[in-house]
């Protein structure tokens, strides 16, 4: 059950939003979202937490901070979206934008393993997870040729420490 308590932990007061919609008006991803960003805050204000957390909006948010920069009430919506995603994962809510989540998971797995991004590992894991084998097959060889995708991972020395950080802070997805 998502409670007011959990929402309160986002350390921002959703009541300060007066629903002017400036966040949505400036959002570069707005056209691809089901719900406008201001509606997400509205759901929270009304206690309709599930609606907010089930919306694809929170996953499509690119974290560009346009909304946070322009908000007349200085509400940091980008940060609020971070918090909502984290809650959604913890609560085991099904993510509509599956591929986005799979990408983030694949990306973080490389960091967990190597300490730094490993392009080839990321691509392999992402493609296996999504079954999307065909996208970007045209640019990949060029990337190799230009030396932009390395064959081997960039391992850091303290990989144990890295794994440790992940184990202590990673959000375990239900």
């Amino acid at each position: 059950m998502i409670t007011e308590e959990i929402i309160r932990n986002t350390s921002q007061n959703p009541n300060i939003c007066y629903q002017c919609g400036k966040c949505s008006a400036g959002c570069p991803i707005r056209n691809y979202m089901d719900d406008s960003p201001n509606k997400i805050i509205r759901y929270i204000q009304l206690g309709l937490y599930e609606k907010a957390l089930n919306s694809d909006t929170i996953w499509l948010c690119a974290g560009c901070l346009t909304c946070s920069t322009r908000c007349p009430k200085e509400f940091d919506l980008a940060k609020f979206m971070d918090a909502l995603r984290e809650i959604a994962l913890k609560e085991g809510i099904k993510v509509k934008e599956k591929n986005l989540l799979k990408f983030h998971k694949a990306f973080l797995n490389q960091i967990k393993k190597h300490g730094r991004a490993y392009e080839l590992g990321l691509v392999r894991e992402y493609k296996l997870a999504t079954g999307d084998m065909m996208s970007d097959v045209d640019v990949a060889p060029a990337m190799f040729m230009k030396g932009k995708i390395g064959i081997l991972p960039h391992n850091i020395k303290d990989r144990k420490g890295m794994k440790d950080i992940f184990e202590k802070t990673e959000v375990k997805i239900k």
Partner: peptide
Amino acid sequence: RGRVSKIYEENGKYMVKGEDTIAG
């Protein structure tokens, strides 16, 4: 009903970007 996020000029017009928060 909504605040405007940005005004920019394009082809001699002022593009006013807003959101109708009633219709969403």
